[in-house]
Design a protein around this nucleic acid. Structure first.
Lengths: 241, 241
DNA sequence: CGAATAGTGTCTCTCAGACATTATTGG
DNA sequence: CCAATAATGTCTGAGAGACACTATTCG
């Protein structure tokens, strides 16, 4: 940062600044399909449209802390995998004033996702339509329970699309998939998560080999219960996330 | 964004905000080794340390435009591959006040890199020491011309390390490598770029096959000049970047 | 035993690494 | 011809897809 910046920036009120916010893409699985938690806007602007939960960044709070606070206050969720996604800074993304928003991706296991829906926050779940459309990914649509596309507020459709892309990209080289699963899970559940996010079926033996050869999984020795067929072995992550 | 946010946020002066800046990691190649352009700080704080060029984001300018402006004003570079890297928001990253910074990665062909060094801006080049250390990447050190590690200002060492990681990660599935090359280049030059960024040698036949099979390269029909041995075919990118 | 799903064995195809070989330039 | 590097051919081993087969549970 140069001399001029130093002088210009030293007085906090020297010139007007963009407001800074965080927006959260709360992704989880709903009946085996990828879904996102949204808030219906009742006020202008974009009243009646659906928005990602968000909030302004306090002067005394880091970006990560602001995201955690929004997760807690707006979604009633205590803990989730949170990672910074991208920062959106178009001039007209909010008609009220200039707001730059740091988007975060939050991954919820199916259970947390359902609990957030049942909690006090007026959240709704939108199923995501994620057609395969090659690696680069096509459009991502958020659907109502009746399968109709929802109108999203602001630039939140862009944020959502980027979230799905990021998740897809990290799926096979990172451990993000496990953030969408309970602590113990079967290989079939793990494959279902991958298939739901990718929007394409995968080869079973190859998938199992790849996952087991990676060495991240540890068999628990117990098996799933309540099936009317051969129960599958339960695994957990060998190394802590 | 909720009702409360709406009311709290509507008055632009309602509560203090973090300042918002962009910082640029200007990466290029110097004698075949990865290098970064830095400014030596003359003023407090961190006087004498080396910093990434940066500047505040104006109210009427997008993040990308702010990055382009810094590229132009602070580095004298008209055009470069620019992509957003990550947003840094630690509370104490700048001792003067709370500044949140959106870091950008700028990739320069060897020629632009040299021109920026010779230009009016008081930039210096630091060679990067990028040991292989596996995919996750070890520490990245910026070295002076005498090979001594440079002390970086603020959290700029973190930003630099992340820039190298991102570049490595995108090397083989994106076309970023071509942003470091002139418009026409040989396959050997392309391989040199990959090896410099990855910090590890690559297998020649396999590398050639992979690059040619990808279909991105178009032979120009001309060959490099000035060699005392068999000159290599010159290629260019088939599809526009 | 039948239904349903878990889990495995095996063949093939693709692709990367390794190494050797041929091709082409200047001197 | 020699030196130096470009460019290619070929063998091998790792890993994914496809498909069939065996295993285990409930009823």
């Amino acid at each position: 940062m140069s001399e001029a910046d130093f002088l210009a920036g030293y007085d906090p009120a020297a010139f007007p600044r963009p407001a800074l916010a965080v927006d959260l893409v709360l992704l989880g699985l709903r009946d085996g399909r990828p879904a996102v938690l949204l808030l219906e806007r009742s006020q202008h602007p974009h009243a009646g449209r659906w928005a990602l939960p968000g909030g302004f960044v306090g002067l005394d709070e880091t970006l990560d802390k602001a995201a955690e606070r929004v997760l807690r206050e707006k979604a009633g969720i205590a803990l989730a995998h949170l990672e910074q996604l991208y920062t959106f800074g178009a001039l007209d993304r909010d008609p009220r004033m200039r707001i730059v928003s740091v988007a975060y991706l939050a991954l919820l296991p199916e259970r947390s996702f359902a609990e957030a829906l049942d909690g006090e926050a007026p959240l709704a779940a939108a199923i995501l339509d994620v057609p395969w459309a090659g690696e680069t990914g096509g459009p991502v649509a958020a659907l109502s329970r009746r399968g109709e596309p929802l109108a999203l507020a602001f630039d939140h459709a862009d944020i959502l699309a980027l979230a799905v892309l990021r998740l897809r990209g990290k799926l096979d080289y990172s451990d993000v998939a496990f953030a969408l699963l309970p602590e113990q899970f079967t290989l079939r559940q793990l494959q279902d998560v991958h298939e739901a996010i990718l929007g394409t079926p995968l080869n079973k033996p190859a998938f199992r080999r790849r996952m087991l050869d990676r060495g991240w999984l540890k068999p628990t020795g117990t098996r799933e219960a309540g099936t009317s067929f051969r129960p599958a072995e339960l695994y957990r992550l060998a190394r802590p996330r």
